[in-house]
Each structure stands twice: as C-alpha cells, then as structure tokens.
C-alpha cells in the first residue's frame, strides 16, 4: 500500500529520494570508517549523520505527504528557528508580550500560505508585523534600547518566517507548471542543492582547505572549500535541473552558479550573528549540527532567491 503510493510519485522524486538514501548510507559508512583511518579529525561526523537521517526522514515524509503536512512542518520549523533567535538575541523584560506577538506572525504568515494567497504573504511580515511590533513596543513605554530591540524582532521574523516561508509557498505551485517532478520536486531540489552545497563546501574544505576567507567571522571557511563547493553544486544543479524544474539550460546555469554563493553568505551571516551573541551553536537541538538556525542558515538566503528566479524564468503562478 505504502509502496504503491510511493510508486505513484514522479520518477525524478523517487530517484531523488533513492539518491538521498544512498548519500545517507555512504555518509554513515564514512562516519564509521574515517575516524578509524584518521583519528581525531572526523569525530563530529557520526552525530552529524544521525541528525541528517532524522532531518531527511521528517522533511522527506512531509514532502511526500503533500502541501498541508509540509506547510504545518515548516510553520513549526519557523517557530523553532524564531524561538532560538529570540532566546539568544537580547530582549528587554518588558518585551515578553511583543515576543508572543512575533510568534503569532508565524501563524498569520503560514495561514496566508495555507489559503494560497501570495499577496497576503508578501505584505504580512515586511509591513504589518513591522508596524505591529513597533506599535506594541511603543505602547509598552520603555524607550531605552527601543530601536535595537525592534530591529532584532524584525530581523528574526524576516529570516525565520518570511524567507523560510517561501519554501512552503513553493509547494503551492500548480502541478501543470511543473510536470517534471511536481511542486514537491521543486522543493526537494532546493533543499537538496542547498544542503548538498553545505556538505560539498565542508568536504572540499576538509580535504584541501588552506586559505581562510574570513578568519574573524568563520575560521573554518576556506577559499578552496567555497570554490570547490560552488563548482560542484553548480554542476549538480545544471545536471539535475531538467528532471526537477521547468528551467531551460542558461537560466539553470545562472541559478546553479548563484544559489551556492547565497547559501555561503547565509551561512557566514549566521556565523557573524552567533559571534556577535557570543555562542558557537544556536541550541543543542540537532547533535553534530547545533540548533535549527545552524542548519537553516544557508536555506534562509537561498530559498527566496530560488523562488524568485523560478518566478522570473519559469513559473507563471508567482
């Protein structure tokens, strides 16, 4: 029964899940073998792989289950990311209720996705949550630290709710526009490429990394890792795009080259914020990765870019 249902999914998506499973198995094998070959260099790989299995299982199941499950899952993921952000960022004692209001923006934004209203989604966070938090905070009456705090609230909502919400909205693309692998295929491809880029940069960096890009922000990032990662990801993107997206060759080349750069900057932006806040990881939610924000950092920048590039080059809906 479950097998039949899985076989009804588009071929590319089934192949994608098969490939992902293969990568997970290879990664887990590497996590067993590499620490024995080079002791001390790979010890974070085993817990990292365990978390990868968990992430792929949950997100994969929601993708296959359809847009309803996926929207609910991403609403929760946005909430967890926002909670991590607001826990670490400085807030004032008076701001507890403003924080509650900011959490409410998760419900409102994902409600717009649920009713498939793109116009509402576009304005809720940048305009109405912006105005609403400012009004509430002014009403609370404490002025010292006002601008800094209202800015922090807004930064958190934009990256955790608005940017990530684009992923859930992509699931509402009409099937007729994406006959290749359906909306789930579009989303699968975005998440896969973004995370693949992180892994490719990590692996190239571990293998060849010499010259640090930004020692003050992210000492583990090297030019070798970044460029190796970009090129590998671009090649994978261009090769697989025809199976998952309606993109033609040149647009896919353009997105393939730019998407990993945005992913890289999402990653180091979050690193800069973590340094500013004085933490290494945003929480202990995912052993080997850190918190939800640590895992989502690159996706927060790639998701809107991928969404808009698809909208410009291929999709009529958005």
């Amino acid at each position: 029964m479950a097998i039949d249902w899985f076989l009804l999914q588009p071929l590319a998506l089934r192949a994608g899940f098969g490939g992902l499973l293969l990568l997970l198995v290879l990664g887990s094998l590497a996590a067993i073998i590499l620490p024995r070959v080079q002791p001390g260099k790979w010890q974070d790989l085993a817990p990292r792989m365990t978390s990868w299995w968990l992430i792929c299982g949950i997100v994969g199941a929601a993708l296959l289950a359809g847009w309803q499950a996926f929207t609910l899952l991403f609403a929760y993921i946005s909430f967890v990311a926002l909670r991590e952000f607001l826990t670490l960022a400085p807030t004032r004692r008076e701001d507890r209720l403003v924080v509650l209001l900011v959490y409410l923006s998760v419900l409102i934004s994902y409600w717009a996705i649920w009713i498939n209203n793109y116009d509402y989604f576009l304005v809720i966070v940048p305009i109405y949550v912006f105005v609403g938090t400012a009004i509430t905070m002014a009403f609370m009456g404490r002025t010292d630290g006002f601008l800094a705090t209202v800015g922090i609230m807004h930064w958190g909502v934009i990256v955790c709710v608005y940017n990530l919400g684009h992923i859930a909205f992509l699931m509402r693309t009409p099937l007729a526009e994406v006959p290749q692998a359906g909306p789930a295929g579009l989303v699968f491809f975005l998440i896969f490429v973004t995370q693949f880029n992180d892994v490719a940069q990590y692996v190239w960096g571990k293998l060849l990394g010499r010259h640090k890009i930004s020692p003050t922000v992210s000492p583990n990032k090297t030019w070798e890792g970044a460029i190796g990662g970009f090129l590998t990801t671009a090649a994978v993107f261009v090769a697989l795009a025809p199976f998952f997206t309606p993109l033609s060759f040149y647009p896919s080349l353009f997105i393939g080259l730019t998407l990993p750069v945005l992913g890289f900057f999402g990653d180091i932006t979050m690193s800069a914020i973590k340094r500013d806040l004085g933490v290494k990881d945003t929480s202990q939610l995912l052993p080997g990765h850190g918190g939800a924000l640590d895992r989502l950092d690159s996706l927060m920048f790639t998701a809107p870019w991928y969404f808009h590039m698809l909208a410009i080059f291929a999709l009529e809906r958005f």
């Binding site: 909670r83 607001l86 826990t87 807030t91 004692r93 507890r96 209720l97 509650l100 959490y103 929480s283």
Partner: peptide
C-alpha cells in the same frame, strides 16, 4: 536557565524561550 523569561514571578501568560 530561561524559565524566568518563560514565566517570571507574577506573569500569567507563558512565552516560549528555549
């Protein structure tokens, strides 16, 4: 750590913080 932000003494509505 953190419970004092979630529900400090005297507050009625809990606000999630990790």
């Amino acid at each position: 750590q953190g419970a004092g932000r979630v529900l400090p003494r005297g507050a009625r509505i809990p606000v999630p913080f990790t």
